[in-house]
C-alpha cells in the first residue's frame, strides 16, 4: 500500500487517480498512524510552504514522515512536497522544513515569468531507478514559483533550465523528490510513478 499524505494542500486526488490508473494499491490519509502500515509514502502538495509545514505539524505528520524514512521506506515528495523535504525555505519569510535533505528553497529571480508553468525538460545528472525507462531530456509538467538548492551536489538526480539550471529531482537514500508533477506528466510521469511503486514493492 502506498500512502499519500493528505494535509489539505490540494491536488492529492490527482496523485491518487494516477496511482489507481497504474493499478497500485494506494490511499489518501491525514492520519500519522497510517504511515506505519505503508510500503511507501508520497508527500504531494501545492500552495504555501509555511502553511503546509504548520498543517503537517498539527497532525504530527512531520514526525511520522521522519520515522517512516528512518525505517527505510521509500518517500517521494512532489512539487511543494518536494520542497518540504529540505531544511528550510525562504518563501515569504523563513520556515523550517522536514530536514530530510540538506538545502533550502528560494524564489526564482527576475527575468523569468513566475510561476514556472508548463512542460520543461529534465536532464539527468546521474542514473536513478526513479527515471528508469525515461529518456534523458524528457518533458515533465511544472507549476511552481520557488526552487530548491540542495547543500550537497550528490543529492541532485536531475536539473531543469529556467533562467538558469535548478535541481528538479533529488535522491538521498530512500528519500526521492521531484519538482514536477508526475501525476500530470502523461506517459513519462506514469513511468516515474511505476518506478516508485516498484521501489515500494507494491507493483
Amino acid at each position: 500500500m502506498i500512502v499519500i499524505v493528505d494535509f489539505g494542500a490540494g491536488n492529492t486526488r490527482s496523485v491518487l487517480f494516477a496511482l489507481q490508473r497504474i493499478g497500485a494499491d494506494a490511499c489518501l490519509t491525514a492520519d500519522a498512524a497510517e504511515l506505519k502500515e505503508a510500503n511507501g509514502v508520497i508527500l504531494p502538495g501545492v500552495g504555501a510552504f509555511g502553511r503546509a509545514m504548520e498543517r503537517l505539524k498539527r497532525g504530527n505528520l512531520d514526525a511520522a514522515l521522519v520515522d517512516s524514512v528512518s525505517t527505510g521506506k521509500p518517500l517521494l515528495g512532489i512539487c511543494l512536497g518536494y520542497q518540504l523535504l529540505f531544511s528550510e525555505s525562504h518563501e515569504h519569510g523563513h520556515h523550517v522544513g522536514l530536514g530530510l535533505i540538506k538545502g533550502d528553497v528560494l524564489s526564482f529571480g527576475k527575468g523569468v515569468k513566475i510561476p514556472h508553468m508548463g512542460w520543461n525538460s529534465v536532464e539527468y545528472r546521474k542514473s536513478s531507478c526513479l527515471f528508469e525507462g525515461v529518456e534523458n531530456g524528457t518533458f515533465f509538467y511544472f507549476a511552481h514559483s520557488f526552487f530548491v538548492r540542495p547543500a550537497e551536489h550528490a543529492a541532485a538526480l536531475a536539473v531543469t533550465d529556467y533562467g538558469g539550471e535548478f535541481v528538479s529531482s533529488v535522491q538521498s537514500g530512500n528519500v526521492f523528490g521531484v519538482q514536477f508533477h508526475p501525476e500530470k506528466s502523461a506517459g513519462a510521469g506514469r513511468v516515474v510513478l511505476e518506478n516508485f511503486c516498484r521501489l515500494c514493492r507494491v507493483s
Partner: peptide, 11 residues
C-alpha cells in the same frame, strides 16, 4: 471534473 481527472494525466 472528477470523471475527467480520473481519466487524463495532463493538467
Amino acid at each position: 471534473v472528477t470523471d475527467i481527472a480520473g481519466e487524463i494525466s495532463i493538467p
